[in-house]
């Protein structure tokens, strides 16, 4: 079984949990005491991942330490349609968004760690960089909607959407609200409405997807 070294509040770990769920793959979860224990910085953990970061994905001899690479692996294993269309343009665009998701982590993700778990950082700069990234994403999604498309690449959700979603959806944890980004809001709703979507703390259940238990 594929093993995920996991932390419940990590946006990057969530990315992998979400992808696994969407492609119907069951992972073995190994909880790591990221906070307050800093277990990911321990000597034992660094033997597995010298960078001392989470998540880590292990499948036999394969060890992956970058969450976007894990998305590629899980999708290629169990849901190749999630890799996006097999054209030069689409493959490149997916790579573009996977790289872009790193900027979301470095801005919105760091702002969240600062506000929530007291990590150091220049919070104003982190939020400003976060808004810059959100503006780019909003502009791209707006143009996609003009073309009648709901997703970042192609006609269906792909690893590009999943890579960008967590830090965007959790941005409010770091004091960045999405009120000014209507295209992002609707895109986020589309992702949260996917079959087999799983939430994490900070992203609540879409109760509207289930009928009211009591007729009002």
């Amino acid at each position: 079984m594929i093993r995920l070294y996991d932390y419940v509040l990590s946006a990057s770990c969530y990315k992998v949990r979400l992808m696994a769920s969407l492609v119907g793959l069951k992972l073995e979860h190994e909880a790591v005491d990221f906070h307050p224990g800093l277990e990911h910085k321990s000597a034992a953990f660094r033997q597995m991942n010298p960078a001392g970061t989470l998540p880590v994905l292990m499948d036999g001899d394969l060890i992956l330490t970058e969450s976007t690479a894990m998305l590629v692996y899980l999708a290629r294993m169990s849901g190749p349609e999630w890799l996006g269309p097999d054209t030069p343009q689409a493959l490149a665009q997916v790579q573009q968004w996977l790289a872009f998701s790193g900027r979301l982590a470095a801005s919105l993700g760091r702002a969240r760690l600062h506000d929530m778990l007291l990590y150091p950082g220049d919070i104003d700069a982190l939020r400003r960089d976060g808004h810059d990234a959100l503006r780019e994403l909003e502009a791209a999604l707006t143009e996609r909607r003009f073309a009648g498309r709901d997703w970042l690449v192609g006609d269906a959700p792909s690893i590009a959407d999943i890579a960008c979603f967590p830090n965007v959806a959790l941005s409010q944890d770091g004091g960045v609200v999405l009120d000014d980004y209507p295209a992002i809001r609707l895109w986020s709703l589309s992702i949260r409405s996917l079959d087999r979507f799983v939430e994490m703390p900070g992203i609540h259940r879409l109760h509207e997807l289930r009928p009211a238990p009591v007729e009002v």
Partner: peptide
């Protein structure tokens, strides 16, 4: 932050339903 079901909006905190 709430959710819409049919012709009502519910609060996400305790689920109070408003027409």
């Amino acid at each position: 932050h709430g959710f819409v079901r049919g012709e009502t909006l519910s609060c996400i905190y305790h689920g109070w339903v408003y027409g």
